[in-house]
């Protein structure tokens, strides 16, 4: 077995399994901590509040627009870019089709891929840079925040360095970082991919019940 076969074969399956099991374990673990039922008479709908808050916090409120615009633009550039690359890049679809799903879907043309990657990189670099020049972010950031950023950056970078799709070593490098990233994910701040939903829904339900639309 060559190194490439190893990192996109057994190691990848192990990493993917750790990712899935880890995320499920952690999310269930959080929910299992439980809480008490709110006994106060409701003045509104908890479910409605939860849905509203989950959706509304995708966009900053008008008052905070100025102060959030940087994170809004850079954040969406990065996140949307990343999802598009993840799901619509030709090599990714081919990989999933071959190894996991057995079916594929239409992919981005090369020029669109490059453009998306540029947008995503710009967003990620801006977010990362902001961490050490913004006094608040600098104060509150921990090694975990930097690790998640650097690792995600390297996954994206190695992916783009392998764009010529002609060197086994480059493909293997990308796969190694993908595997590390998958293994690291459930143990890190990257879990916010899922917990953002819990957090918003909790707030929305609590205050939606009280009739406040947060």
């Amino acid at each position: 077995m060559t190194f490439l076969q190893f990192v996109e074969g057994p190691l990848f399956y192990v990493a993917a399994a750790i990712f899935v099991v880890g995320v499920v374990y952690r999310l269930i673990g959080i929910l299992r901590l439980g809480g008490e039922r709110d006994l106060a008479r409701p003045n509104g709908s908890a479910t409605g509040g939860a849905i509203l808050t989950v959706l509304r916090h995708f966009v900053p409120r008008r008052t905070f627009w100025r102060g959030s615009s940087f994170h809004f633009v850079a954040g969406y550039a990065f996140h949307l870019g990343l999802f598009v690359l993840l799901l619509l890049a030709a090599p990714h679809v081919a990989f999933l089709q071959e190894r996991v799903l057995g079916f594929g879907w239409p992919v981005l043309p090369h020029w669109a891929f490059i453009l998306t990657a540029e947008v995503a990189f710009a967003g990620l670099i801006m977010l990362w840079v902001r961490r050490f020049v913004d006094p608040v972010q600098k104060l509150i950031s921990t090694s975990g925040d930097y690790a998640a950023t650097i690792l995600t950056f390297l996954v994206m970078l190695t992916g783009c360095l392998a764009l010529q799709e002609s060197h086994v070593a480059l493909r293997a490098t990308h796969m190694v970082f993908v595997d590390i990233w998958l293994i690291y994910f459930p143990f890190s701040r990257l879990i916010h991919t899922f917990t953002f939903f819990f957090s918003r829904a909790q707030t929305g339900a609590t205050y939606g019940r009280r009739g406040a639309k947060l």
């Binding site: 905070f64 959030s68 916010h192 953002f196 957090s199 909790q202 929305g204």
Partner: peptide, 9 residues
């Protein structure tokens, strides 16, 4: 909480 993208209370 309103400014928090995660809606953290």
């Amino acid at each position: 909480t309103l400014a928090c993208p995660m809606g953290i209370d």
